[in-house]
Design a protein around this nucleic acid. Sequence first.
DNA 1: GTTGGATTACTACAGACGTAGTTACCGCGG
DNA 2: CCGCGGTAACTACGTCTGTAGTAATCCAAC
Lengths: 146, 146
Amino acid sequence: MTRSTDLTTAELRVLKALWEVDRGTVADVRAELARRGQDLAYTTVMTLLGRLAAKAAVLVDREREPFVYRAAQRRESVLRDRLREFVREVFDGKADSLVLNLVADESLSHADLKAIERRIAEAEVHPPPPLEPITPTGKLPKKGRR
Amino acid sequence: MTRSTDLTTAELRVLKALWEVDRGTVADVRAELARRGQDLAYTTVMTLLGRLAAKAAVLVDREREPFVYRAAQRRESVLRDRLREFVREVFDGKADSLVLNLVADESLSHADLKAIERRIAEAEVHPPPPLEPITPTGKLPKKGRR
DNA sequence: GTTGGATTACTACAGACGTAGTTACCGCGG
DNA sequence: CCGCGGTAACTACGTCTGTAGTAATCCAAC
């Protein structure tokens, strides 16, 4: 079995838009995607959300129309799974090699590394507070419409 | 255009096997893949090598049969492109976020990070020696057969 | 009431993918 | 000389992907 999970890139883009709005209708997600420069047909977004629902990646509240969607898992969790898979497939599981390449590629500076270390050191001292590293979290709710 | 480049995962696996043997025939590559647990039909490997050649990812010496293939680019270079793409698509270009997640996922330890820093510090002092970080390089030539 | 915009459920589809079968050669061992 | 294993060139194909069109509803403003 190919793990019913495993999102495609198009699906991931939609899911990311959904995380951004936190919860929303097809129209909401579509608008968020548009804001990101992805102009898709209304039905395309619906198809994608449908596939995501089929993969249990998003939950749908069909109580009343229009249906409201929201991600089934936290962003961190999904991205981390993706990352793990990537490290395995491309870098043979060698995470350090990956980081070394990030640096060589200048995607990451020495300063960034230090900042990360500092971050970790703090986390190790204080009791693990939010549990999740503060990644690219989104702005505010920003619903609108309806 | 979808950049004639952009290897699929199956193609990447083949390319990685090719790097491992450095240069070789379809049979050589197939054997290396088998060693890695990927048993593919001879023709499948040929198809994949053909597609890689079409994408200019591998060079073919058709002087005499059986043809000899070899990667067109260094491993580091290709993996790095992949990585860059991944960081952009999944982590919105935020490399530090990616690393933070590697740590949180325990794919990377604090010690690994320090080792990397040390590595960089050295590289900054000494004149950049080999230019490429010593990543998952392969064993020895190991041809055999033929 | 009628109609038009919003919405959902299906269907469509071309192109990419992963794998492999078929056909045609070709040189070597018998 | 002949057949066979190794090889190259094509063809095949079921799936998956990304995108979207169509049909059927529903509700609110005329």
